[in-house]
């Protein structure tokens, strides 16, 4: 809680939203890794899962890619009155709360997996590729991944994304490579993890897994529209310098043609473009309505007025919900680390 409050203080003090948000997210991600790796080794005396079949883990990325299976199973559970099987319903309720409160900002403020490529994307600083961009169609890849894996998971009644494509398994337990299929899955895991969580972000400075693979990101960009927080570009102030396009870590700002950059629905409200815009032309708004411009720390407004800015509301929602999720495993991770160091 102290850490979350410190991040909030630093955001308000410096006016830099994304920098301190990234620190928060990266700490959450590595705490998650420490906590779950420690648990996997502690419980099973090894880092491998050896069960012949894998159930859908309670993970938002897994649930989005198996959403049809979850819907079908919950239909059966409700119909049969087997209330012990209603776990995904409570997760669904939690998802609804988070979506109403944060929308797509989940990916930048709460997702402990996103903190992994966020961290690597910032590691090389000025030595990474400066002006990296991909064709706009490529940005639809996560939605394609979501459609394909939702259908194939339903038809095979197996969490296919988890088994075949998810590099996040790296954070918990691996599948034991006992046969040819498992070996193929392990090779894909290593390639995906190296490419999308480590090397891709290091070289391009982008959150490659979040921007090009994660099915939950695509899911959330669809449903996140019910949340009022938006990142809005003021065309009158914009000088078309395109710094925002190069800075966006999830490649959610398009710059095709001579017009102004365009923020596409995959934006997850990280605030990087807000921080980087020299003209203050990009700001957090509610439903795109004018918010009175970007607040710059120390620009003469009273602290109380600053607290009621849209930016402050988003930071508050993000840190409170992120802190609530992190509160489950960050203290445990710190205890585990302390024990390991004192041993």
């Amino acid at each position: 809680m102290g850490f979350t409050a410190a991040i909030a203080f630093l955001v308000m003090k410096t006016g830099r939203v994304s920098r301190w948000r990234a620190v928060f997210l990266v700490v959450m991600a590595w705490a998650f890794v420490v906590r779950f790796k420690a648990q996997a080794v502690g419980l099973k005396a090894g880092a491998f899962m050896t069960e012949p079949t894998q159930e859908v883990p309670y993970c938002h990325v897994a649930l989005s890619s198996t959403i049809l299976n979850a819907a079908y199973n919950q239909y059966l559970a409700l119909k049969s009155g087997a209330w012990r099987q209603w776990g995904p319903l409570s997760l669904g309720f939690l998802w609804l709360v988070f979506t109403l409160a944060l929308g797509q900002a989940w990916c930048s403020w709460v997702c402990y997996f996103g903190g992994l490529d966020e961290g690597f994307s910032r590691l090389l600083g000025r030595f990474r590729l400066r002006r990296f961009s991909l064709p706009p169609a490529v940005r639809d890849l996560p939605a394609g991944v979501l459609i394909f894996f939702a259908v194939i998971s339903m038809t095979s009644l197996t969490p296919m994304f988890c088994l075949w494509a998810c590099p996040i398994k790296l954070t918990t337990s691996f599948l034991d490579p006992v046969d040819a299929v498992r070996k193929a899955q392990t090779v894909i895991l290593v390639v995906m993890a190296a490419g999308t969580l480590v090397l891709g972000p290091l070289i391009t400075g982008k959150r490659v897994f979040c921007g090009l693979v994660c099915p939950f990101g695509a899911w959330q960009s669809l449903w996140g529209q019910v949340n009022p927080f938006r990142v809005t570009l003021d065309k009158e102030s914009c000088t078309r310098c395109r710094l925002c396009v190069w800075a966006c870590p999830t490649m959610a700002i398009e710059h095709g043609g001579p017009g102004h950059p365009r923020i596409i629905p995959y934006c997850n409200r990280c605030g990087e473009c807000v921080d980087v815009c020299p003209e203050g032309a990009i700001s957090f708004t509610l439903l795109g309505l004018p918010s009175g411009g970007q607040v710059v720390a120390g620009a003469g407004r009273s602290p109380l007025a600053e607290l009621w800015e849209v930016r402050s509301l988003l930071v508050f929602c993000g840190l409170v919900l992120g802190g609530a999720v992190g509160g489950v495993f960050v203290p445990d991770a710190l205890r585990t680390l302390a024990k390991a160091l004192l041993r």
Binding site: A137, D140, L141, A143, G144, V145, L146, I147, F148, V151, A218, P265
Partner: peptide
């Protein structure tokens, strides 16, 4: 954007 995504799928 769903049609573009479906063609990727």
């Amino acid at each position: 954007r769903l049609r573009a995504a479906a063609s990727i799928a």
